[in-house]
Amino acid sequence: MSGAAAQPRGGVTVGTLSDLPPLEAGAVIYLRHWFSGSETRDQMRRDFEVNFGPEVAEAAFEAFGYLCNFCATHGRRPLVRHGMTCRCLGADENCFANLLASAAEGQKDDAHILASLIVTPRKAPELVRLASDCGLLMREVMGLKLPRQTGRPATATLH
């Protein structure tokens, strides 16, 4: 074993931001903005206002902030994030992004599993509800449609 401190597993690179669909990529970028300080949060608020108008922007900003703060307050541990300009996607960021997307798409079982990785199981249902509300609002402001729900696949193998 080395004497150096172990790298947090939540920061392990699992892909790149460009690998993600728009909602998930936006969730990661906004997560980084939220936790990088008041200056980047103010920039995020201005970007929302320019793109979505003042009323929708305020609702989206507040919902996203509440979601992030809930994760910080009730998290099992701090969510590990990559830097603002980093193109990598960390494990925790990926979990957060997929939580938001699966909750917004109504995939409650998947969302609950992902939420349980971020917060304690007792807090997971509340996190799923917050992620669903926030994800639906973000889908709306980003002009994204919900994917068509299909039946359960015969196999879970993709490739």
Rank of each mutant, 00 (worst) to 15 (best):
R77Y: 10
P125Q: 04
T73M: 08
R46D: 12
G106S: 11
T16K: 03
Y30A: 14
P22Y: 11
A97W: 08
G3K: 06
G3H: 09
R122L: 14
F64Q: 05
Q107L: 14
L99E: 07
E39P: 02
A104V: 03
L23D: 08
A97V: 08
A115S: 11
A5P: 01
T150D: 08
P121V: 12
V14E: 11
D19H: 13
F61L: 07
H33S: 03
L117G: 13
T155Q: 12
P78Y: 12
L130D: 06
A104L: 11
L130R: 06
T157E: 15
T85R: 01
K108V: 15
K108Q: 13
T73K: 00
Q149S: 08
E62L: 03
C86V: 06
L100I: 11
D92S: 11
V50G: 12
R46K: 05
S36H: 03
P121Y: 02
V50D: 02
Y30M: 13
F48W: 15
L137N: 08
A156E: 00
S36M: 03
V119E: 12
H74C: 06
G135R: 04
R32Q: 02
N51V: 03
G37V: 05
A124Q: 07
C86G: 06
A60G: 10
L99A: 04
G75A: 03
R41C: 07
D19K: 02
S18G: 06
L137Q: 13
G83T: 02
L158W: 12
E105T: 09
R152Y: 05
T73H: 01
P125F: 06
H82W: 02
G143F: 04
M142A: 15
G151F: 10
S38N: 05
R139I: 00
A101T: 12
K145V: 04
T16W: 13
C86R: 00
G75C: 07
G11M: 06
A25G: 10
G10W: 01
G15Q: 05
P78Q: 09
D109L: 09
T157G: 02
S102Y: 06
R87M: 07
A154V: 06
R139D: 04
L136E: 05
R77Q: 13
F96H: 04
L136N: 09
S102R: 07
A5D: 15
H159Y: 05
T120Q: 09
V119M: 01
F48P: 00
A154Y: 02
A103F: 05
A111M: 12
H74K: 14
V14Y: 06
R129C: 06
E49T: 15
R41M: 10
D133G: 09
S18V: 14
A154C: 06
R77C: 12
V141D: 09
A101G: 02
T157A: 13
Y66P: 03
T13V: 15
Q107I: 00
A27E: 02
L99K: 11
A101H: 14
G10M: 05
R87H: 04
C88P: 01
V14T: 07
Q43E: 11
I29V: 13
G15L: 00
G53Q: 13
E55P: 01
L79T: 10
N69C: 02
P22T: 12
P8E: 00
D42F: 12
G90A: 12
